[in-house]
Design a protein around this nucleic acid. Sequence first.
DNA 1: CCGGTTAATGTAACCGGTACCAAAGGAGAT
DNA 2: ATCTCCTTTGGTACCGGTTACATTAACCGG
Lengths: 349, 349
Amino acid sequence: MDNAEQKSPQRRRTSARATVTIRDVARHAGVSVATVSRALRGSDLVHPATRERVDAAIEELRFTPSQLGRSLAERRHAANGIVFPDLSGPYYADVVLGYEEVAATLGRSVLILSTHNRESADEMVLELAGRVDGLAVFGRTVHDDVVAEIVQRGVPVVLMARTEIEGADSVRTENVAAAASVVEHLLADGHRRMSFVGDPSDSTDVAERWAGFRGALAQSGAEVPERTIPAGFKEDDGARVAADLVADGLPDVVVCANDELALGLSVALAEQGVQVPGDVAVTGWDDVMAARYAGLTTVRQPMREMGGRAARMLDARISGDRSEPRHDVLTTQLVVRHSCGPHPKEAHR
Amino acid sequence: MDNAEQKSPQRRRTSARATVTIRDVARHAGVSVATVSRALRGSDLVHPATRERVDAAIEELRFTPSQLGRSLAERRHAANGIVFPDLSGPYYADVVLGYEEVAATLGRSVLILSTHNRESADEMVLELAGRVDGLAVFGRTVHDDVVAEIVQRGVPVVLMARTEIEGADSVRTENVAAAASVVEHLLADGHRRMSFVGDPSDSTDVAERWAGFRGALAQSGAEVPERTIPAGFKEDDGARVAADLVADGLPDVVVCANDELALGLSVALAEQGVQVPGDVAVTGWDDVMAARYAGLTTVRQPMREMGGRAARMLDARISGDRSEPRHDVLTTQLVVRHSCGPHPKEAHR
DNA sequence: CCGGTTAATGTAACCGGTACCAAAGGAGAT
DNA sequence: ATCTCCTTTGGTACCGGTTACATTAACCGG
């Protein structure tokens, strides 16, 4: 016993930053570390009087249990990760919001990682996977084999807005039918020649929207464009497209892969003297806040719910759910505003 | 030696999820754990041939070092936290974006926590503080004494958009002069009776904007309202204010504490037949994307840079910088748009 | 052929918790 | 008074890495 005290030669305790450990508390309270641990966890195997002594020691030493030690012993991180291509724009923020909200409620911290277009993205994601109990991955941020590797390592993964991968849950929004409803609405308004702006190879979502767009046009007998007008997701990309459109001749409608694109396009068109919706109708996708103020016709997606659902799915897997992977599809909603032209309501009802 | 093998009775290894540890690798490569560790860290104290054997073993066993074990041994988390009142709205997302971008570059993971208005916010933040090497705290999300506690615990803290606290760095944006410039611009346009919407007790920023607003009005000799029209930060809050304004009589200008408020207010006014800027001018703050499309006069703040700077400050502290706390103030910029009335440029130039 | 270096590796003690198992002590039963 | 049984507590082996220190082997000049 005396020896034990000798062994830990208590460095100058003047006021140095000596992190307080559970052993310090135990010594101070005159009990064993096991008892302190039990008191911490609220076990009922501790005598009230003892618990009081321990609590007093904790208070006095200002002890805070190390999350690291705890996690290592419990073999769990109590944290989930979420991976994004990019956090800019209003779209992703909502997903994170929903995710964080639910995760926090479930007692899990949230680690975020935005891959931008860094080459090191794959490594960063793998590293992240080693710090969490579960991982939500948005879109095509990482290669399929990286996701497979993580799944294979035993870390639950849920994919968001991305094609399914063996062994992982997924949540996405409905695109095909929504695209069709956009087209149908436009057709009913008398529009015929439609272009689609966006790059289907960029994301599963865009690919599906393009497919739905083509399908609906084909079914109606209207002219189906052979290819999309390729573009990214930013306002700048929209502006660039505007120039080409004016040069090449305007269609009746430009259906855009997202709102930022559509908004950038509209502004650029206006600057070149093209009236929206007078000369050309424009639609977007996402229903971001700016779309409301710009009067943009668009498709609303429940981004926040998507995040929340991803967090819940992960929680279930981490908690031991071993059922077949789930693949949820959230419904979307056409929001008609001014940018697709005055709707002749009388014409169809 | 034979005994050692007995001791770890290798559970069914059919295909079970037996996490591979550094000791497995060591055994497999026929070296000690120290050597494996050295090989992992890229120490030059490992013979090339040995390194090769170790690498082969790592590859074969698909070994990934546990971040937990590593962090515990190294006594660092390699992660930073960022705390928000709420992640909704375009404003915070930008800060997180800037923060994450820089933190990732510096090799630190990012943990986010949104306190919403949960009662347990304080505990959650304290818990978070135990998982990170440094913490960025936005606005009045947590009480001063909680921040002080964290600082005192030795965790570097940087405050964003919040009054300074002993021992912590801070970054904020300039408010007083910006508010004055808004007022001056409006006065130059001939406006006189101005109201301010927002709750100064809500945030340091709002308090400073209100102060700058009053100061500039007082200096010009114009009438200074005694109190603000209290409101939160959401579009709904703006809509509620609109009703009161119409009932009580309109001023010439309504200066709002942020853009969402201003936008919600404008729409609600329009619905009640009040023209903006014809009957009343409206200004906001933040310059969110929707403000551009709504033509809202506002003040632009470098949110992204604020986040980035916070991340860099934290990094310096974590890396051992012991200099006096820094308090950075970022400059803001008045953005004049349609909502404050046609600017009679000729009048003053 | 030998003491002194230097390179390469092994041993084991941490890091800060959790939890299994054994042990001590008191109450109640016989 | 003795024997169970139950409550409470202590000792200690983990969790999975890092690293100080010891050890061994090879190489050097004299």
